Amino acid sequence: MSADEKFERTIRLLSRHRYKKLPVVNGAGRVIGVISRGDLINNISKKIPSLV
């Protein structure tokens, strides 16, 4: 799975299930962080050129 696929899947999970945050786990299944809707919005906004 590519990074883009993981990013899109994360967006789908958050919106489909109305989650506000998701745990980030490593290969061993241990939680190593949390990603929130705000994290995704900030990431997307940095990639979209300003329309102003």
Rank of each mutant, 00 (worst) to 15 (best):
K47Y: 09
L22Y: 05
I44G: 05
A28I: 03
S15W: 08
S2K: 10
G27M: 06
R18F: 04
E8H: 12
S45K: 12
R37P: 00
K6A: 12
I35D: 00
A3W: 07
G29I: 04
L13Q: 14
N42E: 12
I11V: 15
N43W: 01
I48P: 02
G33M: 05
P23G: 05
R16L: 11
S45G: 04
I44T: 09
K6F: 01
A3E: 15
I35V: 15
D39T: 02
V34E: 03
G33N: 06
D4G: 09
Y19A: 03
I35Y: 00
E5Q: 14
V52R: 10
R16F: 06
K21A: 11
G33H: 03
L51C: 08
V31L: 10
M1H: 10
S45F: 08
V31F: 09
G38C: 06
S50M: 09
L13W: 05
S45I: 10
G27K: 11
G29E: 03
L51Q: 10
V52Q: 13
A3Y: 11
I35Q: 01
I41F: 09
I32K: 07
R37V: 09
V52F: 09
N26E: 07
E5F: 07
S2H: 10
G38W: 05
M1Q: 15
I41E: 06
R18W: 04
V25L: 14
Y19Q: 08
A28K: 14
G38V: 08
L13K: 10
I11K: 10
N26M: 03
G33R: 04
L14G: 02
K21R: 15
P49H: 08
L51S: 13
S36I: 05
G33Y: 01
M1K: 10
